[in-house]
Design a protein around this nucleic acid. Structure first.
Lengths: 190, 190
DNA sequence: TGCGGAGGCTAACGATCGTTCGGAAGGCGG
DNA sequence: CCGCCTTCCGAACGATCGTTAGCCTCCGCA
């Protein structure tokens, strides 16, 4: 892919995240490249192509981040690693992550179907960590692992709204992990 | 407000939640009422009015729900009540809640400023519960209450994406509360 | 040196956008 | 029964939408 084409994708990610897909016109994208809007069609076939590309980029980034989580070892450590990985992607590719979480729903047809499947698969990989943690005895035997995964995924998916680039996402993820593991109730009141 | 006007607001909430503000045309809204698009302007001055109205309706609903949480009593019980209240609003007014959480950013000018202030105030009320819980000794003394509140608010704010009307939101909120309080680590591994 | 492809231009396309306008039903209170 | 108020109509407005077309320029490579 040419350098110019890459610039266009970056501008699309930024503008879709900032103003929304339907709130961004082809003219806006052209202006970001310092070009007339008709010229963009030397690079793309349609505006929808850009949404698809950014959404896919997000899916690839998040799945790749999960790939780096070890398959072996304590489930607790793998949960911590997964949260770290997710938050790192959000902070380092905030625009792409925003499109991945919020703007994907403007995809249409089979692209939308394919995206939803990828997204479901990602959440399933996340969920599995909590199930295994319970089954291996590292987490409470009576744990509702579905709810636990939902809580963790909520924090992960909501992060794009408040996470700013440059913060220490590892420390952040560890605080989340610690809270999820230990809870917030004091020993005195237990 | 006339009955017809109320119908229009309901249709706006539904369509804005389903297709997004910029993805919903005035023609779409008119069609939902079985009317020509020009006729809507007997009820509103602009499409933006509808977004403002639905967003404000959401703010009122969520604040009113928090108002029902007792000011006294154990902080833990008030946190549980706040989560119950929030999830109930999401389930019972899913469209309005979706606009409140996701579509508000298309507000412009001072309306947007006013909404942001209301939203911040709502989150602050939530946050205070966790701070008080720690200060009163009900939660661990070393609790990072900012992170705890962020975790709870993430679950609350993400709920519109998966919560379907008709589920037992009280039970759901209690599962969240229990997890937040007790954590998911087993006694064996502590 | 010539040629082709990449990338830009201007201009225009039809469609749709949000909004305005004058007029006409219809119901309801005076 | 009159007059007003609500509600809707049909038609049109200018603006903007995403996309296409034909043409030009420039650079790298045969």
């Amino acid at each position: 892919m040419s350098a110019r084409r890459t610039e266009l994708t970056r501008a699309a990610a930024r503008l879709f995240a900032e103003k929304g897909y339907h709130g961004t016109s082809v003219g806006d994208l052209a202006e970001a490249l310092g070009v007339r809007k008709g010229s963009l069609y030397a690079h793309i076939q349609s505006k929808a192509d850009l949404l698809w590309e950014v959404a896919r980029e997000g899916a690839v980034a998040f799945h790749a981040a999960l790939d780096a989580v070890p398959e072996e070892g304590p489930a607790v450590e793998r949960i911590r690693a997964a949260l770290r990985a997710h938050l790192r992607v959000v902070a380092e590719q905030l625009d792409v992550a925003t499109v991945f979480v919020r703007e994907w729903r403007y995809l249409e047809g089979e692209r939308r179907d394919a995206f939803v499947a990828e997204r479901r698969r990602y959440e399933e990989r996340f969920r599995a960590l909590f199930r295994e943690g319970r089954e291996l005895g590292e987490l409470r035997a009576d744990l509702d692992d579905g709810t636990a995964a939902l809580l963790a995924l909520s924090a992960a998916n909501w992060a794009y709204t408040w996470l700013r680039p440059g913060v220490d996402t590892d420390a952040l993820a560890d605080r989340f992990t610690s809270l999820l593991l230990e809870g917030m109730r004091g020993y005195a009141s237990r």
